[in-house]
Design a binder for these strands. Structure first.
Lengths: 237, 237
DNA sequence: GAGTGGTCTAGACCACTGT
DNA sequence: CAGTGGTCTAGACCACTCC
C-alpha cells in the first residue's frame, strides 16, 4: 500500500499539502521529523528538507530546531510584489512612455525624511519632482530625494533626459530598503500634475533605500486615479 | 591570495554580490558556471547552487540551463507582503479589537465578480458587509462574497460572532488566488461606516481565492484613512 | 549534440533550543 | 543534554535549451 515512492521534492510537497488539506495533520499539529518522513516516502532527507523548507517559506509550516515542524496556526498569506522600472511597466502595458522633470532643487533634508533616512543633521538632499506618462496622460508623479553623499555622481546627471527611477536602478542597484503603500487625497499641486480632481483618492508608494546603513534615496510615487497594483497569491495547490 | 575558502552558501552569496557591486561582473554579464565557481571558492557545487538560486529568487540573477547565469539587466525589486488576519494585525499594534456584521444577504453574483471569480451564470453568493475596529474606531470595512457551492458549511455560520476573514482562514485555509491594491474615494455609505469624510482617499485591497479552479471567496477591504501597509525590501547586502 | 543548471542521494557534522 | 532542523560534501543523473 505504500505510496509509489516520492522521488522529488515537489511530490513530497504535494503529499504534505494533501495531508494538511485532508485533515491528516491539523493546524498546530506536530508532523513527523525529516528522517521519518524520508523513510516513509522512500527518499533522501535532503529531499524532504527541501519540500518542507519551501512550505515554511510559504507560511504553511512553522519549523524550529529541536521543536520540530508544525502546521502553522495562522497561515499567514504572503504575496510577492514585483516592483518594476516605471518605464518598463508602461511599455509592457502597450502604452507610449513619456517623462518630464518638473523641478530640481537642493534642499535641507526635511525632518520627516531625516529621521526616516537616518541622516546627519543639516544634510542637503537633491530633490526632484518628475512625471511619468502613458500615452501622453500622466501616470505617476515621482517625488525623489537623493543623498549626494551616497551617490556623488548624481550631481552631474541631467534628470530631464532620464528619470531618477531609471538612473538609480542602473547605477545604484541592489540596495536594501523598506516600502509602504497607502492612499491619499489629491491636493491642488498634485491634481494639476496628474490632471485629476482635487480630493480624488490616489494610490501612493513610499520607498527608502540604503546600502549598509547609509541612506541613498527616498521616493514617493503618487499614481493617477485608476492605478491598480496586482499580484498572485501563490500557495501550493 | 586565494580567498580563505567560502564554506557556506551565505558567504558565497555575499562574495557574488560583492563582485556585482564592485563591477567585476556587470549587468548582463555571463558569470562562470557553478562547477568553476565551486572550484574557485573551494566548496561543493551544491553550495554554489544554493547561493545562486537564492540570488535568482531575489531577482539579481537570471539563470537558464545551458545559457548559464547572467547578472540581471533590470534587477526587478521584489517585496514580500505578509497578509495577516485582521484581528491579529490590530492586536499586534496594541489596540483593542472590535468587530461587527452590518449586513448579510444572498445575492445573484454581480457581473463584475462572476467573471473575476469564473462563476457559472446565476450562481447565488453570500454577501457580507462587516467592520473591524481598533480601540472602537473603524479600522477596515470587509465586503465579502462567498461561493456556498465551494463552502457549504458557510450557511450555518453566525458571522455576527466571527468575521468571515477569520472563519475562512480557519476553515478554508491554503488556497491560491490573486490580489490587487489601489485607492478609491470614500462615497457616502463607506464614509458612514468608516466615520470619515466623503471623498477622502482610502486604501483598498481586492482579493479572490480559489481551490483548484473553483472560486471560494472574493473580498474587498477598505481601510480607514491613515492606514499604511509596509514591508521590507530585502536584498542581500 | 553538448553544456548548463536542477535535483537526488547517502552520509556527515553543526547550531540551535526545549526539557 | 539530546533531538531537531540547517547545511555541506562528493558524486551522479536528468532536463532543458542553445548552437
Amino acid at each position: 500500500m505504500t505510496v509509489p515512492a516520492l522521488n522529488n521534492w515537489q511530490s513530497v510537497q504535494d503529499e504534505v499539502v494533501r495531508r494538511i488539506h485532508g485533515g491528516v495533520w491539523n493546524q498546530g499539529d506536530l508532523i513527523p521529523n525529516e528522517a521519518d518522513l524520508a523513510r516513509e516516502f522512500g527518499c533522501a532527507r535532503a529531499t524532504v528538507n527541501r519540500a518542507l523548507q519551501s512550505l515554511a517559506d510559504s507560511g504553511l509550516l512553522d519549523r524550529r530546531r529541536k521543536a520540530g515542524t508544525r502546521v502553522a496556526m495562522l497561515p499567514v498569506r504572503k504575496a510577492t510584489l514585483e516592483i518594476p522600472l516605471i518605464r518598463k511597466e508602461i511599455c509592457d502595458k502597450g502604452h507610449t512612455y513619456g517623462y518630464a522633470q518638473v523641478t530640481r532643487r537642493r534642499v535641507p533634508s526635511p525632518a520627516r525624511l531625516a529621521s526616516k533616512m537616518n541622516l546627519p543633521r543639516g544634510t542637503k538632499l537633491l530633490h526632484l519632482l518628475c512625471v511619468h506618462s502613458a500615452d501622453a496622460k500622466p501616470y505617476v508623479i515621482e517625488e525623489r530625494w537623493i543623498n549626494p553623499d551616497a551617490v556623488p555622481a548624481v550631481e552631474g546627471v541631467d534628470f530631464s533626459q532620464i528619470s531618477p527611477n531609471e538612473w538609480l536602478l542602473k547605477h545604484v542597484p541592489f540596495s536594501a530598503g523598506d516600502i509602504a503603500f497607502f492612499a491619499m487625497s489629491a491636493d491642488q499641486p498634485v491634481a494639476d500634475l496628474l490632471e485629476c480632481e482635487v480630493g480624488e483618492g490616489l494610490f501612493v508608494i513610499d520607498r527608502s533605500t540604503r546600502r549598509d546603513t547609509q541612506a541613498i534615496t527616498s521616493v514617493r510615487l503618487i499614481f493617477a486615479p485608476g492605478y491598480r497594483m496586482h499580484t498572485v497569491l501563490s500557495l501550493p495547490t
